[in-house]
C-alpha cells in the first residue's frame, strides 16, 4: 500500500505540504522573536520622541521580510516544484 501511495504521490504530497507549512511557520516564529525586542525598543523611543514612529515602524517590520523568504519557499514547494508534473 505504501508503495502504491508513493507511486501516486500521496505521502510525498503530504510531506511537501508539511514542509511548506514549516517554511512559513518557522519563519514567522523567527520574525516574531526578532520583533519582540525591536517592538519594545521602538515603543520606548516613541514614548519620548513621537516623531520616531514612522522610522520605528519601518525598523520593526524589517524581520517581517524573513517571512517572505519562508512564504516563497512554501509557494515554490506547493505550486512551482513538483516531482509529478
Amino acid at each position: 500500500m505504501v508503495v502504491e501511495n508513493i507511486v501516486d504521490g500521496g505521502i510525498l504530497y503530504g510531506l511537501i505540504a508539511v514542509g511548506a507549512g514549516l517554511a512559513t511557520g518557522l519563519a514567522g516564529i523567527g520574525a516574531g522573536v526578532g520583533e519582540q525586542g525591536i517592538g519594545a525598543a521602538v515603543v520606548g523611543v516613541v514614548a519620548e520622541e513621537p516623531g520616531f514612529l514612522g522610522k520605528g515602524l519601518f525598523l520593526m517590520l524589517l524581520p517581517e521580510t524573513l517571512i517572505i523568504f519562508g512564504l516563497a519557499v512554501s509557494l515554490i514547494l506547493m505550486f512551482a516544484w513538483t516531482p509529478f508534473a
Partner: peptide, 18 residues
Amino acid sequence: KPVKYAYITGRVRAMKTK
C-alpha cells in the same frame, strides 16, 4: 533576559538626545 531591557534602553537612548 536581554529583551526585558529593550523598552527601557530604547527610552533612555531617546532621553539621552534631550
